[in-house]
Design a protein around this nucleic acid. Structure first.
Length: 442
RNA sequence: GGAGAGAUGGCCGAGUGGUCGAAGGCGCACGCCUGGAAAGUGUGUAGGCGGGGAACCGUCUCGAGGGUUCGAAUCCCUCUCUCUCCGCCA
């Protein structure tokens, strides 16, 4: 969420940034108009309140001096103010809500170094902070070479048996899957491996958060109010709870409504959770296979930082997510999303796209975003700078997948498939598979 | 689900109608003390909003909303959340 004061001071920069976003038509002047009305109302109300307070104090003094005539006089004065004040308070509430509602629906502003573009065609490949195509190629696993035509994951022998869409459809409808046997185990191994990597090598604190959250939490990270239709909700008494679309929601909201000490930062949280997405708008895309499901597992990384730490933390988080694919020997590329393709709350996003030989294409497996103070402002999450007494400042928040487990399963299957329908197990995963080196063999 | 207790500043905790944005403690900052540190000691230390170049001034906020009152942290109502006991339960 934007700071109205910033918009007031930088209306042109705001309009410029919004023009680069997709489907956004808001203008700074609209918001400033509301704000001017708001400030007028507040000024008038404050004056009336001040008078009331002064008179009330004088009434107390008059009564103490037994000057009842004076007290009665003042009380009549206050009575008149009390006709004005409640109306002013109601007006203030309304205009505050009007402003907040308007600001809540506005997406974040891209950093200056984000490429400008309308859609994914405008994304730009990224090779690291000081990287080049050559250094990146060295750090990243190569594409696998096949002596046969590689299949899509659902057509691979082992998956035909243990990846069951038909039965899942009977239980839950389309876009659900049942994993069985060694595929189920492989999925579990991937989640464990990722979580262990991030906690032991990158300093993330393992967290097991709720997967049902209130609307306020969804608002805090920016899923609500704009994208209500994309999520599942369960009835809960008079209210509802959302099934998290990503653990970003509970992990980031862990610091909501708090003032942290600077020394505590950065905070780094990692969680392996199920995620639930209704994805109403995506009907028809990727209908085959388990690429796009209503329910999937994902390891999520969240960092809470000072404003100064945010940019380097973004690179660090990307590196943590990349390490997953490097250890698994999966070929991938990294894209910097352009302004038109970024999510609602992001100031800059890197997507990691893993190579899927069965599809002969790269597919998103991780998205790593830095959100600035956008979410912090919605959550009221601040920290107190160390040293001389200073006012609290909003923290900066980052989130990234590290990585999507279901999609990673697809990637392992497609990249390590053998002609006989079996699949080799990457070395890093073997300890999690009781030493198995392949599955689905005869 | 039943019964009871509670929600106050960064944290802990006092405060049952005015002088309370709020005692005391912890923490933190600055100073004194010290060769340096610890200990000790003194002072300071909530946030939002509005106005102002600033110092500062005003206003709101003691879980949330509403009410009583000239005046509410304090009284009344509703809601939310937390804790304890009982029941149920993975």
């Amino acid at each position: 969420m934007f700071d109205i004061k910033w918009i007031r001071d930088n209306p042109d920069a705001f309009d410029q940034a919004m023009s680069q976003r997709k489907n956004v038509s808001v203008r700074a002047s609209d918001l400033i108009g509301i704000d001017e009305r708001r400030r007028q109302i507040i000024s008038r109300l404050n004056e009336a309140q001040e008078k009331r307070n002064v008179f009330s104090k004088q009434i107390g003094q008059a009564k103490a001096q037994k000057d009842d005539a004076r007290a009665a006089e003042l009380m009549a004065e206050v009575a008149r103010l009390k006709e004005i004040i409640p109306a002013g308070e109601a007006e203030e509430r309304d205009v505050e809500k009007e402003l907040r509602d308007a600001l809540s629906a506005i997406p974040n502003m891209a950093y200056d170094d984000v490429p400008v573009g309308d859609d994914e065609a405008g994304n730009v490949e990224y090779f690291g902070p000081n990287g080049s195509p050559e250094t990146a190629a060295k750090a990243r696993p190569p594409k696998p070479v096949f002596a046969f035509a590689p299949k899509e994951h659902f057509d691979i022998g082992v998956a035909e048996k243990d990846m069951d869409f038909e039965t899942a459809a009977k239980l839950s409808g389309s876009r659900f899957v049942i994993l069985k046997g060694q595929i189920a185990r492989l999925e579990r191994a991937l989640g464990q491996f990722m979580l262990d990597l991030h906690t032991s090598e990158f300093g993330y604190l393992e967290v097991q958060p709720p997967v049902l959250v209130r609307d306020e939490a969804m608002f805090g990270t920016g899923q609500l109010p704009k994208f209500d239709g994309d999520f599942f909700f369960t009835a809960h008494g008079e209210n509802r709870l959302a099934l998290i679309p990503t653990a970003e929601v509970p992990l980031t909201n862990m610091v909501r409504e708090s003032i942290l000490a600077e020394e505590e930062l950065p905070l780094r949280f990692a969680a392996l959770t199920s995620c639930f997405r209704s994805e109403a708008g995506s009907a028809g895309r990727d209908t085959r296979g388990m690429l796009r499901q209503h329910q999937f597992n994902k390891v999520e990384l969240v960092s809470i930082t000072t404003p100064e730490q945010a940019i380097s933390e973004h690179e660090r988080m990307l590196a943590a997510a990349e390490t997953v694919l490097q250890r698994l020997g999966l070929h991938y590329r990294v894209m910097t999303l352009c302004t038109g393709d970024m999510g609602f709350g992001a100031r800059k996003t890197y997507d990691i796209e893993v190579w899927l030989p069965g599809q002969d294409t790269y597919r998103e497996i991780s998205s790593v975003s830095v959100c600035g103070d956008f979410q912090a402002r919605r959550m009221e999450a601040r920290y107190r700078p160390a040293g001389e007494k200073q006012a609290p400042r909003y923290v900066h928040t980052l989130n990234g997948s590290g990585t999507a487990v279901g999609r990673c399963l697809i990637a392992v299957l497609e990249n390590y498939q053998q002609e006989d329908g079996s699949v080799l197990i990457p070395e890093a995963l073997q300890p999690y598979m009781n030493g198995l080196t392949s599955i689905g063999g005869r």
